[in-house]
Design a protein around this nucleic acid. Sequence first.
DNA 1: ATCCAGGCTCCTG
DNA 2: CAGGAGCATGGA
Length: 312
Amino acid sequence: MRFRVQPTAPFAFDLALAYLRTSPSSILEVISEDTYRRALRINGQDVLVTARAAGTALDVELAGRSLGPADQRTTELLVRRLFATDADVSTLVGDVQADPVFADLANRCVGLRPILIPDLFETIVWAIIGQQINVTFAAKCKRALVDLVGERLRVGDQEYLLFPGPERLAAVNEADLATIQFSRQKSRYVLNLSREISAGQLDLDELWHLPTDEALPRLEHVLGIGRWTAEYVLLRGLGHPDVIPAGDGGLRRIIGHAYGLGRSASETEVRQHAERWAGWRGYAAFYWWFALQQDAMTRGRLDHERRETARG
DNA sequence: ATCCAGGCTCCTG
DNA sequence: CAGGAGCATGGA
């Protein structure tokens, strides 16, 4: 089953793929030269979704058993949300001209939109895992969690991993999570979240209908979710375009560097800069993270080359 | 070796 | 109510 999605212009799928390729959160995505591929649960059924660039459009293919028109509709809405294909980004660069530093970055990111993590529960768990620790270790923890309780989808001779739902995660205990190097409090946050959702005490889907200023406090009410996590989830899970996790260590570091502070910017300083990106603060966060990842990759390559050279 | 990582909760004074 | 310890490990 296949269909086509036509994003608004400009749409830079290549930049989206470049982001996902280097993003530590992309454990389950399979990114190739021109495709995004991932196993997802659609209407209660496991499906392999492949999105491929086709000129200015996106070709989407579904592989799974007994798929119907309803599944296609659900997937189309999901894909359009994941890649923000309906957003009107035509005014972004013009809107941020008052800030030449960010305008320069925005010029290099034309057509890039904040890409979502496909599932809200996964987004929150990932954000909690990422609290305090470095992203490399966080990615390792997420991978270990999926290996521990994730499910698998076999398509042809390939196997794809699915992120566990709250019910599956609620079934494990602290000792299980300790074996994959979760701290006690992190286990507590994740298990509490999973159990509240499973028990019907917490309905994440309610968040879809709320504006930013109402969704934020509701998320922060959950154990283990503070301001950074709530803002991160609004951006990466719910697709709010104007939310910036200003306390983010990576953002503070690269923004401090970009504006010549010689140190990390404070959370307050990040929010002050962000006022000039009003309307696009989520995009800005995503673009800065993109720049950060590109820097890290360049550094990694240089280090590698240096080692190669040293070895002769 | 020491400090800080894509923070948060809880306890102290 | 501000400030700080603790978390579990890895990289700089």
